[in-house]
Design a protein around this nucleic acid. Structure first.
Length: 532
RNA sequence: GCUCCUGUGGUGUAGUACGGUCCAUCAUACCGGGUUUUCAUCCCGGCGACCCGAGUUCAAAUCUCGGCAGGAGCACCA
């Protein structure tokens, strides 16, 4: 068949070549136009844009979930989960459950403030609040109930081995000596656990799985353990707490979650949970994974690590400019839609990737550049006296500078008032060193001798360097804070003091985008660096 | 060690289910040019990749096998 096809193609091609040779390529085009006009258009491969399709969505109310641990505020990494889940929900007209997985009081204890932070950050990132918000700690009775059901039905048991003992047995291919005890004995131990008669580490509830599972990580996995510590929300009400794999599995079922999108580090979690679903006779949700993400500019940050460093005053707080937290990104002035475009562009793949803040920044620049007003910020200012070539010449005493170079509205300007005898201005030290003749942007060509500059022409005469500058009467001290690796660089300078608003982002010409964090009378204005 | 996942330019991504339409898409970065009274934006052009090897086939990024590399799980964390 293939050979026939090939020889057919060969003969057709030679016929076509002959026609082309005799009558020119145009005649081929004519024939094709008649026969099959589509053949003339070289089909480019179609680029799939946006998210891939979710599997198994027919006749279903799509429910997704985002389940952070409230042991601190959200980081850049979390935002991927929010963007992906909320975007899928939008695509399928479904809902997202924001679930706080706060069942650990010891290793990653919940932080009370973090609950409201995260709810708020979720809304900031996705553009709308989560459809449903639940806290695992408040749904404990449900989990404990299922745990008891599991023991009563014989597919769960209380194992009193230490973790070390169990690991040893498991790796040797053996089972826990507690595995085959009666349901009554297990129920007894279970109530001892619940009553607080067993101490942490003395017992754990395990899910029975096939013992010959090739993946040792899945064999008789632990579902609940004892924790006598205090929980910031429910206090000391419970002595037994579910582990993630159990709590999450039960809650996904309770919320009728249809699709789970999670990091691929949780692949074994899916496998464990499927085993549990089989015991209960439930259908497991469709699951998709994303790979590990490393951000070039930020090393390895964990929420608990940051928490510790903040406690030790290594960082000023969760919104420290050097931290990859959502709080920090917001403080700097990133637009949430840039984060969304960024993660959506990356899509959902299982590849482990290294990304650069530069890419997010480029999305952000495209977003904010058209609407960001311009101002001048002069770092390391050098004070110059201005004089006029020839006689003391009078010019317009109001200098108008466009708020934005692409603005078509001629009234959208900032105004600098020249005093009649104003003759003091500032330029950047770098420019001072580098140029003897330059053009003060939007004003005049000047030449410089020592600390004096002479106005040569209001009109542009040549293509000398254009620099930004400031009249003394419109300047005010400002300090720009730039995060750089593990440091914060401080640039002192003067800012163009024209209609400045706290919390607003400006583009400082020839410097970059920065946000005015605060304007306090008598103090320099505080600027926070966004990007160039 | 056991189990699992992933390999497309500097970075990220499309294409891979059903091999040909792919001398491989788009973005970002970088380089060059243009517009611009910002070293911003915008526009144009360029650069550069199918992990390796073998096999199947007329035809392989795509299928098979074998390597190699990177990552994850094996917590009484999430």
């Amino acid at each position: 068949m293939a050979k026939k096809l090939s020889s057919l193609i060969d003969s057709e091609v030679s016929i076509a070549n002959e026609i082309a040779a005799n009558d020119g390529i145009e005649s081929i085009k004519k024939i094709l136009t008649k026969l099959n006009p589509d053949a003339l258009v070289r089909k480019k491969q179609i680029r799939r844009t946006g998210l891939p399709d979710l599997l198994d969505t027919e006749n279903k109310k799509i429910i997704l979930r985002f389940a952070p641990n409230p042991n601190g505020p959200l980081t850049l990494g979390h935002s991927r989960g929010i963007v992906l889940n909320s975007q899928f929900a939008k695509k399928y007209n479904g809902k997202v459950v924001l679930r706080f997985d706060d069942t650990d009081t010891k290793v990653k204890p919940p932080m009370l403030e973090a609950y409201k932070w995260i709810e708020e950050e979720y809304e900031w990132i996705s553009g709308s609040p989560a459809d449903i918000v639940i806290r695992a700690s408040e749904r404990m009775p449900i989990y404990l109930d299922y745990a008891e059901k599991m023991i009563s039905k014989g597919f769960g048991y209380v194992c009193r081995c230490s973790s070390g003992e169990f690991k040893k047995l498991r790796d040797a291919g053996e089972v826990s000596p507690y595995r085959n005890r009666s349901i009554e004995e297990n129920l007894n131990d279970w109530s001892a656990m619940l009553d607080g008669k067993m101490k942490a580490g003395e017992g754990v509830v395990r899910v029975k799985t096939p013992t010959d599972l090739p993946n040792p990580a899945l064999r008789d996995w632990p579902a609940l353990r004892i924790q006598h510590g205090e929980h910031p929300i429910v206090g000391k009400m419970y002595k037994v707490w579910p582990l993630l794999d159990f709590q999450s599995a039960i809650e996904d079922h309770e919320q009728r979650v249809t699709h789970i999108i999670r990091g691929k580090d949780l692949m074994d979690s899916t496998r464990k949970q499927k085993l549990l679903y089989e015991h209960f006779g439930w259908d497991y949700p469709e699951t998709m994974y994303w790979g590990r993400v490393k951000v070039f500019e930020f090393g390895g940050f964990s929420t608990s690590g940051m928490r510790k460093s903040i406690m030790e005053s290594e960082y000023s707080g969760w919104d420290d400019l050097r931290l990859p937290t959502i709080k920090s990104l917001r403080r700097r002035g990133f637009d949430p839609s840039s984060l969304r475009s960024f993660w959506l562009d990356l899509g959902l793949t299982q590849k482990d990737i290294s990304i650069s803040m530069q890419t997010i920044e480029s999305f952000n620049i495209k977003k904010i550049d058209p609407i960001t007003p311009r101002r001048f910020f002069v770092r390391n200012p050098i004070k110059l006296k201005m004089s006029w070539k020839g006689k003391n010449k009078k010019f317009n005493d109001i200098l108008k500078i466009q708020n934005h170079p692409n603005s078509t509205n001629l009234d959208d300007v900032r105004k600098w008032r020249f005093n009649e005898f104003e003759e003091t201005l500032f330029i950047e030290n770098n420019d001072y060193i580098k140029w003897d003749k330059f053009r003060l942007k939007d004003f005049a060509d000047v030449s410089k001798i020592d600390k004096h500059c002479k106005v040569e022409s209001i009109e542009r005469q040549d293509n000398r360097q254009i620099i930004h500058w400031l009249l003394e009467s419109i300047s005010r001290e400002a300090v720009l804070h730039i995060p750089q690796g593990n440091n914060i660089m401080i640039h002192e300078g003067i800012i163009e003091n024209y209609n400045l608003e706290e919390g607003k982002i400006y583009q400082f010409e020839r410097v970059g985008f920065a946000k005015i964090e605060n304007i306090t009378p008598g103090k320099p204005i505080k600027l926070i660096w966004l990007h160039s």
